[in-house]
Design a binder for these strands. Sequence first.
DNA 1: TAGGTTTTTCCCAATTCCTTAAACTTGATT
DNA 2: AATCAAGTTTAAGGAATTGGGAAAAACCTA
Lengths: 235, 235
Amino acid sequence: MARKKKILLVEDDEMLTANLAEKLRADGYNVDAALDGETGWEKARSDSYDLIVLDIMLPGLDGISLCRFIRNLPEAAYVPIIMLTARGTEHDRIQGLETGADDYIVKPFSLGEFLSRVRAQMRRPSPNRSLNRDELASGDLRLDLTARRVFKRDSEVKLTNKEFTLLAVFMRNKQAVLSRDFLIANVWGEDYLIGESDKRTVDVHIRWLREKIEDNPSRPKRISTVRGVGYRFEG
Amino acid sequence: MARKKKILLVEDDEMLTANLAEKLRADGYNVDAALDGETGWEKARSDSYDLIVLDIMLPGLDGISLCRFIRNLPEAAYVPIIMLTARGTEHDRIQGLETGADDYIVKPFSLGEFLSRVRAQMRRPSPNRSLNRDELASGDLRLDLTARRVFKRDSEVKLTNKEFTLLAVFMRNKQAVLSRDFLIANVWGEDYLIGESDKRTVDVHIRWLREKIEDNPSRPKRISTVRGVGYRFEG
DNA sequence: TAGGTTTTTCCCAATTCCTTAAACTTGATT
DNA sequence: AATCAAGTTTAAGGAATTGGGAAAAACCTA
């Protein structure tokens, strides 16, 4: 039989938490609760959930920041998140959804409504399971080719288009020395006509990339240069 | 029919090992399991695998060290390695990822996810397979054309671009006496114009090369001089 | 279209590498 | 052993390559 789905509830109103938890358990879910933001963060990062319910107003770490943190965890980036808030103002709402919540419930709400939203999220064929995701990983770098996102250690690194493709080419050719010509052909395209002088643009992109993925950009460990030949991505 | 791909599984949780092995076998792989680091090491060095799955936390020899050892085996240096790590143990995790694993999976994970990551590694036709790597070896010298690296008795020797191509030319023409003209044509390029007198530059490069690859540079054993003709690389 | 981001170009400084020249060593030949 | 041709070694200048700053150009997006 299928494993029970696990839900994390982060809400500071104990009464409400108890009610919601009870309702969810009655519906067959496995529920974990946290009464403040920090505890919620601890749980979110150390266990894996199928859904996270976050109150926006929380003591300590607020729901919006927490949501953002969670979205930056490579392993939890795609967990569905439902936000709860007392205020239904346009502003909060937009902010909430922009940080990547999947749904938004305005207090007060009925248990019935709550449950049906939860079920909706569970039904949704979320991109959560990395089953069909096309990924490349190496060391503590992981890159999701489907979503074009890159994670270093535990947090997301924002790369531009060229940087991303460049990195992908490197990761598909670990350990190999790649010439500028090869990189241009594979990142810019075979047909990219280029004068000898413009190969320097490769160097510049390498620099931007190093800036973002190296721990110490001036002493690059991941992408090393092979003088006179090109660059090499170390495993 | 193609040979079954062989996977080595090093994980101390017997239950988990059994599950993973079963799943992998059902998917057509040949699975070998080890319940501790030492056994894993024995197997890794005495047999050849297409993929190795390592838990980080292991009794005795831990996964991180094991991974490092494997990466130092010349014949297994490029086997894809997937690490299994427990969530939350920030420190171990980061360390592990730097030793050159090709992917990592955070526990708890689903069997489906596990399998898809295994398949991803197997699918990869990258230079990770030692089979596809372009290598030249002779005695205790090994030179990896793809990565442009040279190893002398398992430790890397840093060569400059010219030195590297020079050595490659020698190793492709073992035992043959190569004239300076031949070397210039093959290392510097056919079109390299040079005054008769300046063939000395070849000698100078030979000298740097000897400095780096000979045990005793003043009594060269690998590259010997054939007076009046050129140089010869001894097997 | 304005404003921000991404991509490309350009230039200079730092560095590494290559060449050249010259002194020195070795080996062959007589 | 003396001589000469060929090879070796060292050091110094010069060439080539890369890194970093900055800004123009192209590209988006609101």
